[in-house]
Write a protein that binds this DNA or RNA. Structure first.
Lengths: 197, 197
DNA sequence: ACCTGAACACCGTTCAAGT
DNA sequence: ACCTGAACACCGTTCAAGT
């Protein structure tokens, strides 16, 4: 569903248009690997035009992934708003996995080895921003901050990846949401049992 | 470090030689994406020769990933052997993350969207085999099997991916091993606190 | 300042032909 | 039965040239 505004990228925002086109290509699902020429074509520009705005294909993919993290952050932040602390971990955890399932290709790109976060501070920063929603939870639970933050994050991320990859076999009766609920439920119960020592 | 045996693949095991060469290319680190021609070149065979043994590049990558899972399985199984049940989760968890760090490129390929497990039963099967070491742990802990198995697996996998991606910022004093130890330690403590209800 | 067009080296894949 | 060699359409990237 591309908007039908006139090609404003001739006036200076080709960079933005390329990122937007990349996101749309990922959302429309067909694109497996997302090529530079493919994105240029979608915008209606020559194959070499992107090089005015991105050093190479990797840099373009990184910019798209960065935008993905910004959206990810917005989703996680919105999910936590107005939720009682006691339910926040489960709620944000569900939103995390929900984002992965709503945007599978984008989520995969965000964690793809094709875009190295180490080589791209802007991308790393956007990723960190998104993770704050999760890492902040630890304090709210009144638990040893560091371990709890890392394990919550790792649990939810691992769950997303394994479910997306269809690696966790769901039993016949059981659905995904129910499994997520029970796993997160057991996890917070464990944390609370520890806190009550 | 390629072995210097004569080219036996002219006698029928080119398939095996290609997989082996792929594993070596991944281990020697340089290869980011691992191409079909690249692997063929490493074996000393024409670019089209692999098509006698693999339908396409994806199938070759899947076979390499499958071999990765078999090695992964061997490492996890060996790690659990002769370890007291009480320490088994931590020990195998450490071995899981250890494998990821010893074989980063291979580990990434094993979980790459470039090789779809859904489309490849042999690969999926090898992956499941490797995971049994982890999922079997739940029973040993005497806990609700399903949730514990899934969350252990998700935690350890998420931790591997986030650490590999350099996403978890390690404090100045803290080293990776210590963090892993504390995270896994807190996790099993939580499980046990629950079990003791 | 920003984009096009042609060119380069490379890739995955196909297919006729060799042994 | 298994492999080669040439060919195809395609890709990322560079660079001179256009406006």
């Amino acid at each position: 569903m591309s908007t039908s505004v006139p090609p404003a990228y001739h006036h200076g925002d080709l960079r933005h248009a390329l990122v937007e086109a990349g996101l749309e290509l990922l959302a429309s699902g067909g694109a497996e690997s997302l090529g530079l020429r493919e994105v240029a074509r979608a915008v209606g520009v020559s194959a070499s035009a992107p090089y005015r705005h991105f050093e190479n294909r990797q840099a373009l993919l990184a910019a798209i992934a960065r935008e993905g993290f910004l959206r990810f952050d917005a989703v996680l932040r919105a999910a936590g708003e107005g939720i009682a602390p006691a339910q926040r971990l489960q709620t944000i955890g569900r939103a995390y996995i929900g984002f992965a399932f709503d945007n599978p290709q984008l989520f995969r790109l965000m964690f793809s080895p094709e875009v190295s976060k180490d080589a791209n501070p802007a991308l790393m920063e956007a990723a960190r921003l998104a993770y704050q929603s999760l890492t902040n939870l630890a304090a709210a639970e009144g638990l040893p901050g560091r371990e709890t933050a890392v394990s919550t994050w790792a649990l939810v991320h691992g769950l997303s990846v394994l479910l997306l990859d269809d690696q966790i076999r769901l039993g016949g009766i059981e659905d995904r949401e129910a499994l997520i609920g029970r796993v997160l439920g057991q996890f917070v119960a464990g944390l609370r049992a520890l806190a009550a020592h």
